[in-house]
Simulated scan of single mutants.
Amino acid sequence: MSSSNTLFPLGGPVDENDIVGREDFLKSIQARLADGQSIMLTGPRRIGKTSLALETLRRLKKEGCYVASVDFFRVSTKRELATAIIDACLENRTGIRRTMDALMGGIKTVTNATKLAMKLQGLEFSFSFPDKETSDDLLFSYALDLPQKLAVVDKKQMVVVLDEFQDAARIVGDGVFKLMRSHFQVQNKANYLFLGSKEGLMNNIFAGSDQAFYRFATILPLPPISLAAWLDYIKKKFEDRGICCNEQTIQEIIKISGGHPQDTMLVCSEIYYLLLETGERCLSLEAVQLGTQRALASLTPVFDGILDELGPAKRILIRLVQEASLYERGTHPNEIKRMIDMLINKGILEKMERGTYNFVEPLLKDYLLKVI
């Protein structure tokens, strides 16, 4: 979570007060999960999925549900994934973030060992637990069953967030989705919020008729943040620090950033620190322009890295910036379509109506205009 002292939080999940314009959506997710639905949300990184998920878990926990969150992006092996799931579930009982580490490392005192053993009562293990010799397959199978087992024993509803879920195949290998579905589909006290940043893969996993998770979860589109919500949020933030602002200047910030959550926060943050440095107490269009330049400068290494990874597909972005036809002579239309699809799956472009495409981050477009 972001620090409450940070005016415009950057770089990670934000707390409730910095989730902009999505209260109705939050209430809907919370109600659906509390009623036992599983949900899938997808969209590019840094648009607020994880913040929404963690806030939903916070509210469900307050209502008495058990909750767990696992980020697949942070693990690289089947054993690590199994351990992460087990730890996240057992934290509801033990209050320890890494219960497995505590058990595997041995408990320092007999008293602490007894207390932990009591907290794990009723969760019978089908193997010697914890045991470094336990096979990865057995540990993973136990991890997939644990949300339901824990919920039944403690008479709770369990809600589990699985972030970057499309990475399961990278971690575990082919067949993982079929295996996970076989465990999840018989669970009536545990349900799941699946998150993913690779829209093409996530949509295939949950909407492909030949896929294991076909129609397992309700697919919900992440709503855009309205102009009115951004206006209210940014105005309040600046005014809380004694900085006067008007609607025109705030609208310019939103126009430049496109309302992209992370980029809008970054531009606002740079403007704020610029005003602090200059001693200005009013938000001006000049400050917006200078703050945007500073934001672009900080994003240059990020955008350079993105472009370096794209290879030939970079040409598509350049032609889009130049407002030229995306289909060029000498390149087969199927190859062009493949590159466009890759850019969409990477969260760089979004498809609009009538075959037109927009940059997910307008600041990337501004950057390209400066370097081409």
Rank of each mutant, 00 (worst) to 15 (best):
M1A: 15
S3G: 11
L7D: 01
P13I: 07
V14Y: 07
E16S: 10
E23T: 11
D24Q: 14
D24P: 00
K27V: 12
I29K: 01
L33R: 04
S38M: 08
I39V: 13
T42G: 00
G43W: 02
P44A: 10
E55S: 08
R58F: 02
R58Y: 07
R58P: 00
R59I: 13
K61C: 01
C65I: 02
V67S: 03
V70I: 15
V70C: 10
F73N: 10
S76K: 15
E80D: 09
A82C: 01
D87V: 06
A102P: 03
A102E: 08
K108N: 12
T109K: 09
N112E: 15
M118S: 14
G122I: 12
E124R: 14
F127Q: 04
T134I: 14
T134G: 02
T134P: 01
S135T: 15
D136M: 03
L139H: 04
S141W: 01
L146C: 10
P147K: 04
K149M: 13
A151W: 02
V153H: 11
V153S: 05
V159P: 00
L162E: 02
L162I: 07
R170H: 13
D174E: 15
V176Q: 10
F177G: 00
K178P: 00
K178W: 00
K178C: 01
F184Q: 08
N191H: 10
G196W: 04
E199D: 08
G200E: 11
L201A: 09
N204V: 01
F206A: 04
A207F: 03
S209H: 14
P224I: 09
I225H: 00
S226Q: 06
S226M: 07
A228W: 00
A229F: 09
D232E: 14
Y233N: 05
K235V: 10
F238M: 10
F238A: 07
D240P: 00
G242T: 06
G242K: 09
C244Q: 14
Q248E: 14
I250T: 00
Q251I: 07
E252I: 02
I254H: 03
K255S: 08
S257V: 02
G258F: 10
P261Q: 05
P261E: 09
L266E: 04
V267P: 06
C268V: 06
S269F: 02
L274Y: 03
T278L: 11
T278N: 12
G279Y: 11
R281F: 00
L283D: 02
E286Y: 11
A287W: 09
Q293H: 10
A295T: 04
A295Q: 08
A297L: 15
F303R: 01
L310R: 12
A313Q: 05
K314G: 02
L320S: 03
V321E: 05
E323L: 03
E328V: 14
R329S: 14
K337D: 15
D341S: 12
K346R: 15
E350K: 14
M352Y: 08
E353C: 05
P362S: 08
D366T: 12
Y367F: 15
L368Y: 04
L369F: 10
L369C: 12
K370G: 05
K370D: 04
